[in-house]
């Protein structure tokens, strides 16, 4: 199941982070998200080494831990989307599809003229949409 999703700004400032677990492991998930930023940096700066296409938005599996798999997505505006899941046999196509919907929801949120780019996303509609997307994947 999806246990955490996060949106991180181009200066690595957290714009939105949401956990989807009952347990009190939010801090651990925040730490996992934080660690994934270094991996994204490495992927983007050294595309030859990492084997990712230079201009591919979907960064694929960033790193697996014992209990989690962390996936990344980088938009044109250098905003990073991070997904943490407990499913260890997730298909790439499902994750791509999730990120596409997540990106669309993010675009809707930042298109609000009262949203200040680079500031935290406080939109309740966005939070609800993200919850719906997570729920619709049956991974939650």
């Amino acid at each position: 199941m999806i246990v955490c999703v996060a949106v991180v700004g181009h200066q690595n400032n957290p714009l939105y982070i949401q956990s989807f677990t009952d347990a009190d492991d939010a801090l651990k998930l925040h730490h996992i998200v934080h660690c994934s930023l270094d991996v994204i940096e490495e992927r983007v700066n050294n595309p030859k080494k990492s084997g990712t296409t230079l201009n591919e938005a979907f960064l694929g599996l960033l790193y697996p831990t014992v209990n989690y798999k962390v996936y990344g997505y980088l938009t044109n505006t250098k905003v990073k989307f991070i997904l943490v899941t407990t499913d260890l046999d997730v298909r790439d196509t499902d994750v791509r599809s999730f990120f596409r919907k997540f990106h669309a929801a993010y675009v809707d949120a930042v298109s609000n003229p009262f949203h200040v780019p680079g500031k935290k996303i406080t939109s309740r509609t966005f939070a609800q949409t993200v919850s719906n997307i997570v729920g619709s994947y049956g991974l939650n």
Binding site: N55, A57, T75, T77, V107, V110
Partner: peptide, 22 residues
């Protein structure tokens, strides 16, 4: 500028097939 930053995000999601321009 405010229009441009939003237009970029919107079009990259809608038109560019999720590719980053480098």
């Amino acid at each position: 500028y405010a229009v441009g930053s939003r237009v970029l995000e919107l079009l990259c999601n809608r038109e560019k097939g999720n590719r980053r321009e480098t």
